[in-house]
Each structure stands twice: as C-alpha cells, then as structure tokens.
Design a protein around this nucleic acid. Sequence first.
DNA 1: CAAAAGTAGTTATGGTCAATAACTATTATT
DNA 2: AATAATAGTTATTGACCATAACTACTTTTG
Lengths: 158, 158
Amino acid sequence: MPPSKPSTTSAATDPVDEGVVRGLMGYNVKRAYIVLHSAAQQAAAEFDLRIPTFSCLSVIVRNPGITPSALAELLKIERSNLVVMVDELETRELVSRTQMKTDRRRFELKATVRGRRLHDKAAGAIAAAEAACLTALEDGEQQQLLALLNRIEGSMAD
Amino acid sequence: MPPSKPSTTSAATDPVDEGVVRGLMGYNVKRAYIVLHSAAQQAAAEFDLRIPTFSCLSVIVRNPGITPSALAELLKIERSNLVVMVDELETRELVSRTQMKTDRRRFELKATVRGRRLHDKAAGAIAAAEAACLTALEDGEQQQLLALLNRIEGSMAD
DNA sequence: CAAAAGTAGTTATGGTCAATAACTATTATT
DNA sequence: AATAATAGTTATTGACCATAACTACTTTTG
C-alpha cells in the first residue's frame, strides 16, 4: 500500500476525498448492504418482525421440525441469541416448540398456520422492497452479483 | 411471492433448506460482508483500531482540515457517534483537533505524523486481509463486483 | 453399570455500532 | 436585538453479536 497523499490543506467546500476506504471491498459491500438492509427492515417492521427474526421464521417454515441448533448453525447465529427470537416467535404463536420424545434435549420447531401466513406476506413485502433497491441492475446483473458474493462466502467456508 | 412449500417433515439429518432468505440479495450481501469485515477487523485490531475508527482516520489523513460534520456526512455516521472516535484518535495523538478562527463552532481535524504512519500500516494490513478473502475472484471480477455494488448504493443516493 | 464426556438449550452479561433527544456555544437571519 | 440555524457534545437507548457459566439429558468408555 502506497503512503497516503493528503491534498495540501482541504478547505470547507473542497470535494472530499474518500481515499483508502472507498478502495476497500468491505466498505463498498457494507454500503450496499445498508441500502438493502434498511429497505428490508422497513418492510419487515410492517409485520412487527426484525430481519433476524424473519430469517428464523423463514427457515422454520421451510424445515418443519428443525432443531434450534441446526437453525443456529444454518443462519450462523449463536444458539444463545436464538433463544430470545424463538421465544418471541412462540409467544406470538407463529412457531411451536415441542420437546422430542427420542431425545429430550432437543426441540422441534414448526411454523403454525399463522406463522406461515405471516411469513409469506412478509417475504413478499421484503422481496418487493429489495427489488426497489435493485432496479438499477438488470436481472442478469443481479444473478452475476449473487454469484460473485457467494464465491466470496464459499471460499471462506469451514 | 409464491407460498412456501415445506418439505413434509424434516428429520434431524435432512439437508436443510435455506429457502426464502437465500433468495434475498440482502442476505447474500450480508454473508459476504461478514467474511470481509471479520478479516478486516482482525487486521485492524493489530493496530488497536476498530473499522469505523480506522475509516475516520483514513478520511482525515486524506482531507487535512476536514470538519467533524463533513466527516460524519461522508462516512454516513451520526456526528454524535463521531465524537467518541475523534476523542480517541486525539487522545492517542493520531489526530489533532483545533478550533477555527473564522468560525469558532467548527474544528479542523488533521492527522499527526504518528497518525499518518499508523494509518498507512493499518491500511496495508487491512487491504492484505481483504485480498486473502478475494482470491476466489479474478481482478476483473472484483472490479465488476465493485461496480455492481456501487450502482446499488448510487441508485439510492440522496 | 457407573463415571466421564459430550450435546442441547438456556441465562446472564458485555461490547460494538447505530439512532435519538436535549443541550451549549457560536454564527446567520430578519 | 430577537430569532433561527449550525457545529459540536452528552446521555441514553436499542439492535445485534459474542462469551461464559449453568442445567438437563444422552453417549461414551473404563
């Protein structure tokens, strides 16, 4: 990395130089993430869901009977942090949590009818909110972006 | 959005279906972000810097005399949250904060020699850490990724 | 079989980051 | 001169993530 070259002295109205940070991939990824996340967050809020909670609900809907441990591993969140989310989902009767007969340490998570309904509506709203952020990209470009992102994630897989 | 189709009942060792979330761009962006961020974070920690603090230092190095307000606007962080970071940078004598004569509400931020040196070393380490996460992508693909991300950010600009 | 080790879930706690409101000091507006 | 706007600050809160320590249960193994 070359030493930084400050512009003698920057007055108040100078064009501001983002410099090093804008050259970092992480910074650019974060900026795009913020755009998508805040849109998704707003959409999810309509259903009194936060994004991590929605993600849990979504995986439970698709995998009836999944255990909290498997859910945590999939979403890469700590089991301890999962507890409060599942608590909330259970309290709101969106998800049921029943102890397994075969192994009483484990619990089976299943979405209730209410849970599925809410999920499907929220998923639609979140997808729509995201789509509004992605109008600048053609469908093919979105696929391309997805592939590139997944290769970063995949190259660092455990 | 089509209604979700659960797989009858998922046993313990079933392949888990990530379902809806993996189809959301925000989820994929976040996953890639986590990879890059944790690598950058580790690198920055070697210099006792967290990423937001490094970003501040970096912009100050490139824009001597920048005001806290301009810095906050550029990095899209709240001025109130900036204060503690600049406090720390000043305490560590990486940055100087001097009141302007012309407008005594404003402060000029400048990196010290120590600040510039630390910045350049940290920037190199962070860039190297990022590069290690990006080996799966050719240079051209990295440029492509950057362009796509910036178009998302740009399309939502104020 | 009993002891030890491992697994699943939980509780409590702390750290980072982001967001807001309320405040002081200073400058600009009318 | 009174009012409004701007720059910086303080205090507080909430979301999210990570860790350690714990209970309950199951598996391993001597």
